[in-house]
């Protein structure tokens, strides 16, 4: 039923499938802004902005490399510029930030992100390295904006149920243990697991998605959306706005053909 997840020109009220990930200030503030201006609201439902880190432990080599360069360019006040561009298009922005900053700044960090225009936050290392903190920090964040649970195939069933009950937000499900890598897995099996565990929830899949063909397949299995990150880095490196626009068009075509 892939057509249920796409929005078509005839204006049916249908969900948009694409979530894009960019690292803040990579490869430069201006280039990133030009890409955000080119985001197509007909096919993109959310944009994630990664806050640059010195040790983005759970990112793969491609995204890790973006953090290294982005750290040199990063200015916190740029975040509001990014979310502003997206806001004008009606696209919610979500921050992706490792736990260390919450550890240092507490819930004030969530307030800062909200004030910068983000609708919520994803903390990729929370459940892996700081799970004992999750019962405390998730409700604190939820008081301010949305906490987006990040699960992957290694997340125990009990933890998925417990954490997802602390928030009504959408769920980010990583198909692979790390971004941008290619570990063989049975897509249907992996998808079915999370969809069966959390029926009725908005679940968007990410990590290791490389082709529009994969996007179509994932959507056809019942995912609410697909997050793309490493795939976009080459467009950014080449300042290839045209290629980026074509990529978004190709996703629309995937949806259309699935219909």
């Amino acid at each position: 039923m892939a057509f249920l997840t796409c929005q078509f020109s005839r204006g049916e009220i249908l969900l948009k499938p694409l979530i894009l990930y960019f690292t803040a200030d990579y490869p430069s503030t201006e280039i990133l802004k030009s890409f955000l201006e080119a985001v197509d609201p007909d096919v993109v439902k959310y944009v994630e902005i990664g806050i640059p880190e010195s040790n983005p432990l759970y990112d793969g080599p491609t995204i890790k490399a973006t953090h290294s360069l982005a750290l040199k360019n990063y200015k916190p006040n740029h975040l509001a510029e990014y979310t502003g561009i997206l806001g004008r298009k009606g696209i919610p922005a979500f921050a992706l930030s490792y736990y260390e900053k919450f550890n240092k700044l507490g819930s004030g960090y969530a307030t800062f992100l909200k004030d910068a225009g983000f609708s919520g936050v994803i903390i990729p290392d929370l459940l892996t390295d700081y799970s004992e903190e999750s019962d405390r920090i998730i409700p604190e964040i939820e008081e301010i904006f949305s906490f987006i649970p990040f699960f992957n195939p290694a997340t125990p069933d009990g933890l998925i149920n417990a954490v997802s009950s602390l928030t009504g937000s959408w769920i980010y499900y990583g198909l692979q243990p790390s971004t941008g890598i290619d570990i063989p897995f049975d897509l249907e099996e992996v998808s079915r697991r999370i969809l069966d565990l959390l029926p009725g929830r908005e679940i968007n899949f990410g990590f290791g998605i490389r082709t529009t063909g994969q996007i179509g397949e994932i959507l056809s299995l019942g995912s609410s959306g697909v997050a793309i990150g490493s795939l976009l880095v080459q467009y950014l490196n080449d300042k290839d706005l045209e290629g980026f626009r074509k990529f978004q068009e190709s996703v629309k075509e995937v949806c259309a053909s699935a219909e």
Partner: peptide, 25 residues
């Protein structure tokens, strides 16, 4: 793994240029 009390920390790459996880392939 699905019955552990916590999420198992995944293997990670330390090298930005070469993925040792990809190497497993």
């Amino acid at each position: 793994v699905p019955d552990l009390p916590k999420q198992l920390p995944p293997p990670v790459d330390r090298d930005e240029k070469n993925s040792s996880i990809q190497l497993l392939n």
